[in-house]
Amino acid sequence: MSVVLRVDDLSKSFGGVQAVKDVSFSIEQGELLAMIGPNGAGKTTCFNMLMGQLKPTGGEVFFKGENLTGRQPRDIWRMGIGRTFQVTAAYSSMTVVENVQMALISHHRRIFSFLPFAHKLYKEEAMSLLDLVGMSDQAERHCAILAYGDLKRLELSIALCHKPSLLLMDEPTAGMAPTERFKLMQLTSDIVRDQNISVLFTEHDMDVVFTHSHRVMVLNRGELIADGSVDEIRNDARVQEIYLGGGNLYQKAKAAKHD
């Protein structure tokens, strides 16, 4: 398999605080890679550097061999990377389908077009994207009144607009009910498999992580302390130490089920 994203010695310090320190990893085509770690481990900082919201103080990021370090978010998006946010960000004055159409308009480079009606452009394409995430029945609803889980699904469909080969999802299931979480992650992994997209996501729910990811990385205090398969990570002593909460409960619950 080919490497989609390669990260070399990525670092970021805010004043005297080293938020991310020499993090290196790579993602392969079609891989679902989870990045876990306690709060403040540097996950979101990592994400923001990958997507161009933050400039790294050191290290480089290559997407399909092309250096994207220090580029603007909009340029990185154009290279073929999609992202969803930890806190949802949609255009609250538009309808659901218009939100998707907006991203399509941008993808087709029609932003500076003044003559056509925007709400008629790429409507079918937008509808099929909404269909993919199960939102087509809500297409004409006002975005501001959507339920939180629906917003997350809408964001996913927006992120898929330009047929990205890599998707970055920052806590995709944060703030959702347990059943909703699984549905959303199941949906994501189905789409990823069908379209052969790679995904890098952060997550606090170990059930979600262990069920859906192919590989797991563990970040602690800005450093990458483990990188391996789900089973490797689960049995890693250091990870258990840091993650005294999630991992153990998962094991206990599993043990309880077997009893």
Binding site: A89, A90, Y91, S92, S93, M94, E98, Q101, M102, I105, S106, R110, I111, F112, S113, F114, L115, P116, F117, A118, H119, L121
Partner: peptide, 14 residues
């Protein structure tokens, strides 16, 4: 109502 107007509103919204 054009794509440009939508992009303008999008920039304002988020």
């Amino acid at each position: 109502h054009s794509p440009f107007g939508y992009a303008l509103r999008a920039s304002r919204d988020s």
